[in-house]
Design a binder for these strands. Structure first.
Lengths: 219, 219
DNA sequence: ATTAAATTTTAGTCAAATCTAAAAAATATA
DNA sequence: TATATTTTTTAGATTTGACTAAAATTTAAT
């Protein structure tokens, strides 16, 4: 089944909002899509008619099983293209989102399968987010937030939850990238900030909100 | 300047029709785009307003200098993606057109420049058609039609003018591909058919219309 | 429990790109 | 050259996705 670019964008953004809360509401989706609530309501009706959505007027909505499959496929396409743009074309990891946003709508199954194979079936995109496989299975990446690392330990940055330009700007400032080695030094109880050492740069302190968004794994 | 997918498709097809005759008429473009003449007229007005087209009612139209630049850029994107699909993803050369048709509309300049560099600045696409460079220059590929090869000679297939499914089916049947080595054996005056030997297959005879569409170069 | 505020939906427009049917212009034919 | 045919354009309708303004519903606050 084929969907319009607009439909796909709605589906994808509903999927992302559902990661935070199971039931999604009209305004937050309108905000995510930079559009108006009335436009969202129109599209919700359409998606419901196509059985992609469970939706009750005024109550909220969530993707149906079918809708979820479609969403995961879009996410797969997006993340594979991001991986391609960074590893093959040499883009910076914080510059690829907008381009992948366009490429993800080219939905030829054979293309995506061959791209996946060409890239050697990567498990995560350049932001550390897992790439669903052809059957919609999402690899579990064992990782935890810096805010939850209790011991004084060496860890490797594996993903970043908030990928806003503001966050990426900050990460660049701290010289933090996917794959960067960090040492967690100490935690300050007053504001729950954390001192870390990034590679061989001087130790620095990151705030709780930042720490919560940086995920790492061991070794 | 950004154009809609529909506008780009019109521009590209006008460009292609202009290769055959300088002035294009409404019906032939409608036919090319699988749409109705009335729709074409509507779009022509729009493209004229954007200064992409020289157009006189009832007389015909051609791309302006500006329109030509835009067209060449679309062709560049299309052919680079075709080259990518065949050489990197392993598609057959006769399967990539439809996919490239979608990819060509992702028009980030940085993307195309990096793709070109990644592919090592190829001169021709998998069909043997020249790929315009970043400045819109189209490399001249010295080649001639089989129908024009007078001597008994070994040649290499460099491009195919008619890329319809019907033609591609026939070429597959003859085992003819871009890069295939041919020997021109003899020419029959009755119907101007030509006997050729393809690789190490038994010699076969191709008709004049087919020969006219197969371009080759020496060595 | 009412009222006020916020959220969501409906109703009615709008623009882009398409279509059909009819009118206008150009071309071909007798 | 007058008429028939083909080509092109105009006029008006349709679909998709978005918008504004107003109405309906839910949630919060007094």
């Amino acid at each position: 089944m084929k969907f319009s670019v607009s439909e796909e964008n709605y589906i994808k953004n509903i999927y992302h909002l559902q990661q935070q809360s199971d039931l999604v509401n009209t305004n937050s989706l309108a905000n995510e899509l930079q559009t108006k609530a009335a436009s969202v309501t129109d599209m919700l009706k359409k998606l419901q008619m196509k059985k992609l959505l469970d939706y009750e007027k005024y109550k909220g909505f969530r993707l149906s099983t079918k809708g979820n499959k479609v969403a995961i496929n879009i996410v797969r396409r997006h993340r594979l293209w991001e991986y391609f743009l960074v590893t093959k074309l040499g883009f910076e990891w914080d510059k690829v989102h907008a381009i992948a946003e366009d490429l993800e709508h080219v939905s030829n199954q054979d293309l995506i399968q061959k791209l996946d194979s060409f890239l050697n079936y990567p498990q995560t995109d350049p932001h550390g987010d897992p790439i669903p496989d052809g059957d919609g299975k999402i690899p579990v990446i064992h990782q935890l937030s810096i805010a939850d690392v209790t011991e004084k330990k060496k860890v490797i940055v594996s993903s970043v939850a908030n990928q806003s330009p503001a966050m990426l700007e900050l990460l660049n400032h701290y010289h933090i990238n996917i794959g960067t080695e960090l040492k967690i030094n100490q935690r300050f109880s007053f504001d729950e900030s954390i001192e870390i050492k990034v590679g061989k740069y001087a130790a620095c302190i990151i705030s709780k909100p930042v720490a919560k968004n940086i995920f790492v794994h061991h070794e």
